[in-house]
């Protein structure tokens, strides 16, 4: 459960103040499938970063799964990110010198899970995302769709409650993009909260709840 109350985030660009988020109120229940849409600069990525605890709001209150996470220390925020949130990025963000399996293993390593258990969980993920024969390939040797599959496997390996995807198909062609979306939606069906930021109308329309943003404010919210 995500609850944002009067969230404001201000960036200073030179002597000008840009209100990326201006008093945003938003409730997202567990297991929802939400798309956030809007033109560039509307604040949708900032909203996603605040929800993902990557960015700190300048004012307002953020409750995640019933606990206030607004004023957590940097280390605690890292722990919450690790345990509750999975990110999927437009540019995949795979570590180029690590193999597909090692990229998927990273969150388990950060969590301090023993190597034997890590291996069985990574193997299971490779199976689930149909990457078995690509396990030992580095990102440079993978296709775009395979890279995003590795990224999704990595984002979900610790079974987060919320999966945050920022333009997950932005770097993929239409067919592969649809495959990736089907994959994400499959995870949603399995119970994960899925929040997709996009400016692709067709993609946004697939979600069950559509949030429209403009100039740092939510201007539309329909189910």
């Amino acid at each position: 459960m995500i609850r944002l109350t009067s969230i404001t985030r201000v960036f200073r660009m030179g002597d000008q103040e840009v209100r990326a988020l201006n008093g945003v109120n938003l409730d997202i229940a567990s297991g929802e499938y939400v798309s956030i849409m809007g033109p560039s600069g509307s604040g949708k990525s900032t909203l996603l970063n605040v929800v993902g605890l990557l960015d700190r709001p300048d004012s307002g209150r953020y409750e995640l799964d019933g606990s206030d996470v607004t004023d957590l220390s940097e280390t605690e925020r890292a722990r919450v990110r690790r345990e509750k949130i999975g990110f999927v990025f437009q540019s995949f963000h795979l570590v180029p010198r690590l193999t597909a399996a090692e990229n998927i293993e990273l969150p388990l390593m950060l969590e301090g899970i023993a190597p034997a258990e890590r291996k069985s969980r990574v193997d299971a993920a490779l199976d689930a995302f149909d990457l078995k024969d690509r396990a030992r390939h580095r990102p440079a040797e993978l296709s775009g769709g395979q890279r995003q599959r590795v990224a999704i496997a990595r984002a979900t390996i610790l079974r987060p409650t919320a999966l945050l995807a920022d333009e997950p198909t932005g770097n993929l062609d239409h067919r592969i993009g649809a495959e990736v979306m089907a994959l994400l939606e499959g995870l949603h069906h399995a119970g994960t909260t899925l929040i997709v930021v996009t400016h692709d109308r067709e993609l946004g329309a697939r979600a069950h709840r559509h949030i429209a943003m403009r100039d740092g404010e939510i201007v539309g919210d329909e189910k």
Binding site: L54, A78, H93, P107, L110, E111
Partner: peptide, 16 residues
């Protein structure tokens, strides 16, 4: 830099 950002997004604390 972007790799460090990724590690942070994956939940790596500053100490790690």
């Amino acid at each position: 830099t972007s790799e460090i950002g990724l590690l942070k997004a994956l939940g790596a604390p500053a100490a790690d």
